[in-house]
Write a protein that binds this DNA or RNA. Sequence first.
DNA 1: ATGAAAGCGCTAACAT
DNA 2: ATGTTAGCGCTTTCAT
Lengths: 352, 352
Amino acid sequence: MTPRSARGTINGKPDIRTVASLARVSIATVSRTINGSSAVSDKLSKRVWQAIEQLNYFPNTHARSLVSGRSRILGIIVENITNPFFPELIASFEEIAVTHGFELLVSSGNIQSAAQIETIVRRMLERKVEGVAVLTFGSEESVLDQLVNHSIPLVLAEFEVNNPRVSTILIDYATGVREAVEHLVKLGHRKIAYLAGPHTLHSAETRLHCFESATAVCGLRIRREWIVDADHTLKGGEAGMQRLLRLKERPTAVICSNDMTAIGVLHAAHQARLSVPEELSVIGLDDIAFTEFTLPPLTTIGLSRHDLARAAFDALRVQVEAMAEPGVQPVQRRFEVTTKLVVRESTAAPKA
Amino acid sequence: MTPRSARGTINGKPDIRTVASLARVSIATVSRTINGSSAVSDKLSKRVWQAIEQLNYFPNTHARSLVSGRSRILGIIVENITNPFFPELIASFEEIAVTHGFELLVSSGNIQSAAQIETIVRRMLERKVEGVAVLTFGSEESVLDQLVNHSIPLVLAEFEVNNPRVSTILIDYATGVREAVEHLVKLGHRKIAYLAGPHTLHSAETRLHCFESATAVCGLRIRREWIVDADHTLKGGEAGMQRLLRLKERPTAVICSNDMTAIGVLHAAHQARLSVPEELSVIGLDDIAFTEFTLPPLTTIGLSRHDLARAAFDALRVQVEAMAEPGVQPVQRRFEVTTKLVVRESTAAPKA
DNA sequence: ATGAAAGCGCTAACAT
DNA sequence: ATGTTAGCGCTTTCAT
């Protein structure tokens, strides 16, 4: 009964018809003006924008997604939000995505069971994400299949897949790790331990390999018992260091697979009344904000979350745009992010 | 040209019609079965679920939102994702929301300018969130107006608004802060300093007031210069402590408005070669994971993110459900979350 | 209890 | 360059 044009002005929110009638054009013209999809004369375009402003109108994204098939939502899956590296990564990604008109669907929970992965994939599929950044650094293979089957573009860290829709971000740990080892060697260390991350993480495995080759290049002999498993958590670092402490032949320095581990190490060293860096040098990896405030401030291998977020977004954008154009073929791409040593106060020459 | 029933089976994904025809029912029956909105006979219901399973069908949320006007998306706005308190809060909220079938729209960026607030509100409005948890602990007044004008249910921490759609979570800082002050007094401290948070945060103001009344109750005389401004960051805590260090009459203990501040204090004390807790006792607030791993482990006032997330979700759910029922009036509610002292090793009796 | 049909707000194909 | 119109996939009256 109520005429179309009355809606929005009287009760509810303005819709595209409200704008059209106020601007005295068709709804198609309004749509075209907003999307810039096809030329609209300056005169009408101006009237439309004016009406939009006046009504404080904005399009209904659900209607838009429904008809266009494009949601303008990007998914991001991170490993463990408890590690400050990830919140910062999310914040960066969010900022970049939002400025480019995308919304984010974040999955930040700890992924452990297959059921959880199922839930995450389901969430992404239901909301029709246009692409997903999988920044779990490994252990995500099962996520992939389903997403890939739905031809959703993906970008992965540290893991290459032979699929044109799946891009990869390669992190050059080698540089930072080599700098770290050289730094220690230059200080006079020859007995360097390594606290590894979970073997399920590609990133952790790569970091370990980089350590092994860097020490080999420097001609160091690394005892097997100096390479101990940890799990990228504070407690894991503490436990790992305690194991090192029980060794007869102790290392004089320890490089950790991430900063959380290194902070755990600092804690264990303190409990064992081992002073850092006089009696033990410690190096972390990631350069999270806390490392400036540990006691002593932590020497660490920096990895920029902003660069990583940027690479992830760019990778997805290329793919998402390729999906939109009917002719364009998807192109798998590789992005690189580098690392570099940040020297603070947790490293010094070993005691004679 | 292609018949309806061929879609989904041949090329694209299954839609409600694919399910309907496979189950030999109408699409209305499929919809009713899925939503449990109206009685469907066991026989048909079973056929429908079978078809759904077989096709691996799930409804298109955009279509659903468009017609029902309900998006099943909840917004959450946090203050500063750099403080580990907030990621943990988000993760808790996400877990709860997802298990109840809601999706999350997270705004985690640092809020500073009015333009940023505008962007956040716009994002929420565009995606048609059904409710928003504003966990910025203050400085959010400008967010409110717009959201409230659109009659979107809100839940705020630490701030009451006279609007039936806006619920509040009250945090009982008094208990934890009193315990902290009593703990120090019992150890023999009488000169207690306080590093405050930003005055723009309601939470910070409340925390400060709790400190003032707790010390008053204990009969302590707190010098004005012992109450110094900080900003809830690591650097702010460090700077605040440095100011305290310059005082002629130094405090023997310091309570901080949050853990980040306290970690900054630990750092400043260490640089000044002041040992904690022998020469200075330090207490934080929040009980973030890192506090177990500071040197020394930090005594702090615990505030459960899980309880907070739970309260926020429950508050929103009540409101969201009230919005759905046409008859039900919105009811403003108040939720309470408590705090309590966690004693670790950063507090001890003052030196004689 | 079930089905037919209208229409949510928008985009895109088609017509002019 | 602009308008008309047919759906996008679903929920929800309204019939039966």
